[in-house]
Amino acid sequence: MATEAETGGFNIHPMDQFIVSPLFGDGEVHWYTPTNVTLWMAIGVLCVVLLLVVGTRGRAVIPSRHQSLAELTYGFVHKMVEDVTGKEGLKYFPYIMTLFMFILVANFLGLIPAAFTVTSHIAVTAVLALAVFFGVTILGFVLHGKKFLGLFWVTSAPLALRPILAVIELISYFVRPVSHSIRLAGNLMAGHAVIKVFAGFAVVAWVAPLSVLAITAIYALELLVAFIQAYVFTILTCIYLKDALHPSH
Score class of each variant (00 low, 15 high):
residue 125 T to N: 11
residue 165 L to M: 06
residue 216 T to A: 12
residue 229 Q to E: 15
residue 163 P to A: 05
residue 107 N to K: 09
residue 163 P to G: 11
residue 100 F to K: 06
residue 221 L to G: 03
residue 13 H to I: 07
residue 130 L to F: 05
residue 34 P to Y: 05
residue 212 V to P: 00
residue 130 L to V: 06
residue 86 G to H: 09
residue 219 Y to H: 01
residue 12 I to T: 14
residue 208 A to E: 11
residue 140 G to F: 11
residue 171 I to Y: 12
residue 162 R to E: 06
residue 72 L to D: 07
residue 137 T to W: 10
residue 242 K to V: 05
residue 177 P to V: 03
residue 204 V to Q: 09
residue 11 N to E: 11
residue 171 I to L: 13
residue 92 Y to D: 01
residue 39 L to G: 07
residue 189 M to D: 01
residue 126 A to E: 09
residue 98 T to Y: 09
residue 66 H to S: 12
residue 50 L to K: 06
residue 90 L to Y: 01
residue 227 F to E: 03
residue 95 Y to D: 06
residue 124 V to T: 14
residue 235 I to E: 04
residue 230 A to M: 10
residue 108 F to A: 08
residue 94 P to L: 10
residue 186 G to A: 07
residue 135 G to S: 04
residue 11 N to H: 14
residue 244 A to W: 07
residue 213 L to T: 07
residue 59 R to Q: 09
residue 85 T to N: 03
residue 244 A to L: 05
residue 37 V to S: 07
residue 89 G to R: 09
residue 149 L to Q: 12
residue 49 V to A: 11
residue 226 A to H: 02
residue 129 A to C: 12
residue 200 G to A: 02
residue 166 A to M: 15
residue 31 W to T: 10
residue 6 E to L: 14
residue 79 K to F: 05
residue 7 T to V: 15
residue 103 I to Q: 12
residue 201 F to N: 06
residue 201 F to K: 00
residue 220 A to H: 03
residue 12 I to V: 15
residue 105 V to S: 03
residue 143 L to V: 11
residue 149 L to H: 01
residue 70 A to D: 12
residue 236 L to C: 08
residue 200 G to R: 04
residue 97 M to T: 02
residue 241 L to I: 01
residue 128 L to T: 05
residue 232 V to H: 10
residue 55 G to I: 06
residue 31 W to G: 04
residue 26 D to E: 14
residue 100 F to L: 13
residue 192 H to E: 10
residue 52 L to A: 00
residue 131 A to P: 00
residue 203 V to L: 08
residue 150 G to V: 01
residue 130 L to D: 06
residue 75 G to R: 12
residue 236 L to F: 12
residue 188 L to Q: 15
residue 204 V to R: 05
residue 116 F to M: 07
residue 166 A to N: 03
residue 124 V to W: 02
residue 204 V to P: 02
residue 233 F to I: 07
residue 159 L to D: 13
residue 133 F to E: 02
residue 42 A to S: 15
residue 244 A to H: 04
residue 243 D to K: 09
residue 120 S to Y: 09
residue 157 A to D: 12
residue 71 E to P: 01
residue 140 G to T: 01
residue 52 L to G: 00
residue 151 L to K: 13
